[in-house]
């Protein structure tokens, strides 16, 4: 996640929110939300190096495996639950989406949009895309779930989530027109119906 994209996503989080950041990485987004938006809350992260980075930054971090669920968090106990570049790493991405809606009043999900035009072009040429946003080869990618902007709309509908905002993100800019084609990142803000 680039800094520009991080700032664009932070803009979706209301001032003073209680936030849960699933797959919080090195805690940069949470630290930003603490400093600029007086937010509080926790990050969840599995990787040892990232956990240490969060402690260094002074961000609350819980080393838990998301694939084992969110049982330590009570229903509707956070204003905002973030899943930024996390969904694509999860074995049970759909369960986690439902859990996000259970734990948070609002969910914000961002993930690489596989239907971004350079990816389409690459597939047309017969090769899996390798881009700045998706920098891995097909055989070593940690992204075990590849989906598109449109795919997520279908999944959200299937799980009874009400999308309150959605757009593409490219170089830190909102893409409202043809996001499925023109944006490298898909962003959805939703609530439980």
């Amino acid at each position: 996640m680039t800094h520009d994209n991080l700032v664009a996503i932070a803009a979706l989080v209301p001032q003073g929110s209680r936030v849960l950041d699933l797959g919080c990485g090195d805690g940069a987004l949470l630290a930003h939300l603490q400093q600029h938006k007086a937010c509080t809350g926790y990050g969840v992260e599995l990787d040892d190096i990232n956990v240490h980075a969060c402690v260094q930054r002074g961000v609350n971090v819980l080393q838990l495996n998301l694939d084992l669920g969110l049982s330590v968090f009570a229903d509707q106990s956070f204003d905002v639950v973030l899943q930024i570049d996390t969904l694509q790493h999860l074995r049970n991405a759909e369960t986690m989406l439902r859990e996000t809606a259970r734990v948070g009043k609002t969910g914000i999900v961002a993930f690489p949009n596989f239907a971004h035009w350079p990816n389409r072009l690459s597939i047309l040429q017969g090769r899996m895309p390798v881009t700045k946003r998706l920098p891995y080869q097909w055989y070593d990618t940690p992204n075990i779930r590849v989906g598109t902007f449109k795919d997520f709309e279908v999944l959200a509908e299937k799980n009874g989530l009400q999308v309150t905002d959605s757009f593409g993100l490219q170089n830190g800019q909102r893409v409202n027109t043809w996001p499925n084609l023109l944006a490298g990142t898909a962003v959805f803000k939703f609530e439980r119906n």
């Binding site: 209680r18 509080t40 926790y42 956990v51 969060c54 402690v55 609350n60 971090v61 819980l62 080393q63 838990l64 330590v72 968090f73 009570a74 106990s77």
Partner: peptide
């Protein structure tokens, strides 16, 4: 977490 305390684990 239930009590919204600052905690890292």
């Amino acid at each position: 977490v239930d009590n919204q305390r600052d905690v890292s684990y």
